[in-house]
């Protein structure tokens, strides 16, 4: 059984690359085959990579505060492109200002993301969740 493919990247015109490198190393260590698209990734690039690699999940990062506008519509585009079953995770500093996290989470869940994370989540928990979510989808 080969490693599960996942796609990783920082969405929009966001150039924050440090966290992106950490995530790539972390998820590779955790046994995933990571296609890291790096920074400044458009929705179309996430989708193209997910199709070619048959990825089970797309992990979207956003640090610069424009997450809401960049991330909207990704779920719909995935459906249009035949990726109805793909898991969408999003994390980072998703909105500007001091919006309480539960509100942020609700907003992104509504957009069709399966899991939403703030800037201070535990990566161990994230990879556990990801494995469990992928296993649940496979059933």
């Amino acid at each position: 059984m080969s490693a599960t493919n996942i796609v990783l990247g920082v969405i929009g015109f966001d150039c924050h690359s440090v966290g992106n490198k950490i995530l790539e190393a972390w998820f590779t260590e955790s046994g995933f085959k990571v296609t890291n698209l790096g920074v400044m990734v458009s929705q179309e690039e996430f989708i193209a990579a997910a199709i070619e690699t048959d990825a089970k999940a797309i992990l979207v990062s956003s640090l610069y505060g424009h997450g809401e506008i960049d991330c909207a519509g990704l779920r719909e585009k995935c459906i249009e492109k035949g990726l109805e079953d793909i898991l969408l995770y999003v994390g980072g500093n998703l909105v500007v200002g001091k919006t309480p996290f539960p509100q942020v989470e609700e907003k992104f869940l509504k957009m069709g993301y399966d899991r939403v994370f703030g800037p201070d989540c535990s990566l161990e928990k994230v990879s556990e969740m990801l494995k469990a979510d992928i296993a649940a989808k496979a059933k």
Binding site: N5, T53, D54
Partner: peptide, 10 residues
Amino acid sequence: CGGTDGGNER
């Protein structure tokens, strides 16, 4: 062609 190695087969 199509799909990375270990990627899309369908």
